[in-house]
Amino acid sequence: MYDDPTAPSSTLQIRLEDGVPLPHRAHDGDAGLDLTSSEDLVIPAGGRALVDTGTAVALPPGTVGLVCPRSGLASRHGVTVLNGPGIVDAGYRGPIRVALHNTDLTEPFTLHRGDRIAQLVIVPFLAPVLQQVDELDETDRAAAGFGSSGGFGTAPSKEG
Rank of each mutant, 00 (worst) to 15 (best):
D4C: 08
D4P: 13
D4Y: 09
P5L: 12
T6G: 06
A7C: 05
A7H: 05
P8F: 05
S9Q: 13
I14K: 00
R15F: 06
D18H: 14
P23K: 01
R25F: 07
R25N: 10
R25I: 08
R25D: 05
A26M: 03
H27L: 11
H27E: 15
G29D: 10
G29I: 11
G32M: 04
G32R: 08
D34M: 04
L35P: 01
E39I: 08
V42S: 03
I43M: 06
A45N: 08
G47D: 10
G47M: 07
V51R: 01
T53N: 03
G54E: 12
P60H: 05
P61R: 06
P61F: 00
T63V: 06
L66E: 01
V67W: 10
H77S: 09
G84F: 01
G86M: 02
I87P: 01
V88W: 04
D89F: 07
G91Q: 05
G94E: 03
I96M: 00
A99K: 04
L100R: 00
T103F: 02
L105A: 15
T110C: 09
T110W: 05
T110A: 15
L111P: 08
H112S: 05
R116P: 13
R116N: 12
R116L: 07
L120N: 00
P124L: 06
L126M: 13
P128F: 03
V129W: 00
V129E: 15
L130H: 06
Q132E: 15
T139Y: 06
A142H: 06
G145W: 11
G147R: 07
G147S: 10
S148Y: 12
S149D: 13
G150F: 04
G151Q: 07
G153E: 10
G153R: 12
G153F: 10
T154R: 15
T154A: 15
S157W: 08
